[in-house]
Amino acid sequence: MKKKRFTAYFLASGIGIMALAGYGPMVNAASHSSSSTSSKKVIGVTLMTLTNPYFSTMGAALQKYGAQAGYKVVVDGANMSESQMLQQVDSFIEQHVAAVVMAPPDASAAPSAVVALNKAKIPVFTIDTNVDMSVLKKMGGKIVEFVQSNNYKGGVIVGQEMVQYLHGHGDIGIVDYKLAQSVLTRDAGFYSVIDKYHGIKVVSDLNGEGSTPGGLEAASEMLSANPDIKAIYDINAPSGLGAVQAIEAAHKVGKVAVIGFSGSRQAVEAVKKNTVFKYGVMQEPTLEAKIEMGNIVKYLHGKSVPAKILTPVFKIDKQDAAKYLPIAYH
């Protein structure tokens, strides 16, 4: 019955840490309903997946910082499935949780879940990747706060690294995941750089599903179809590591490089080794979680919080990879 109720509603409904210094509009909880019951001490979290170490690290950090503030934090992984995320949101509504944190696997499908939470008077916070805000606005929904790494700047850094590696000329492939808003923002930053270099051509852009197996499959396919590819841009560490495996399997080590987002310990180690993974960009999921949970607690206590917060990203290369290993996620 619970699933049927939510599904019916769903079908019918049809950046530096700049904000910490006060950037962006502020939102407060003056009109937010609160309760002293035990259920109001629970915060629900639905992340696009927990098999990616980025999100498992983020989930554990949200639980840690929530517990420090006296909240029980329930973390679910949606396994890259929007339908699973919707079911998890429905469960949180049934539990009357104090707030919900979302990192949706599909930005365009997520607004209906936000509207359902709004209707239940449960404040919504997004982290790492947002819902499609243009769709949400049309539906009359709202989120309280969005915390993410500076994905556009990260994309710019990767673009600069790509130009440097290729000296402005060469065919490249992209292991992508266009369903996530965060990835679209990274891609925009990347293209803002490489579009200025007409000698660099994107000859393949395939969905790597944000995973190592997906990255392996996508990179293998593009290398087979485009033997002149000189480098692959990856949108996250798991897919980048999959691309490394594909290059090794194709016996193209030294001929094809991986350049992209690389914040996991394994990816940073690969950049340090520098045989295939040449350059990277690092994010800090623990920092995002700390800021998000801190502001959720503030909001639930009637205080104002920024509508958007951007956390820093860092360029990783062979020379400084060792310096960043201590803060790389597992």
Rank of each mutant, 00 (worst) to 15 (best):
L86D: 13
L86P: 00
V89G: 06
Q95P: 00
Q95H: 02
Q95F: 02
Q95L: 11
H96P: 00
V101G: 12
P105S: 12
S112I: 03
A120P: 05
I122G: 15
I122L: 13
V124G: 11
D128K: 15
T129R: 04
N130I: 01
M133C: 00
M133A: 07
M133F: 09
M133W: 01
S134G: 08
V135C: 02
V135L: 12
K137C: 01
K138P: 01
G140A: 06
G141I: 02
G141R: 05
G141N: 02
K142I: 00
K142Q: 08
I143E: 15
V144K: 03
V144Q: 10
E145T: 06
Q148E: 10
Q148H: 09
S149A: 14
N151A: 10
V156K: 05
I157H: 09
Q160S: 12
Q160L: 02
E161P: 00
E161T: 00
M162S: 09
M162D: 01
M162W: 04
V163C: 07
Y165H: 13
L166T: 08
L166P: 11
L166W: 07
H167A: 14
G168D: 12
H169T: 12
D171W: 07
V175S: 15
A180P: 06
F190T: 05
V193P: 06
I194H: 09
H198K: 15
K201M: 03
V203Q: 14
S204Q: 14
S204W: 09
D205S: 11
D205V: 03
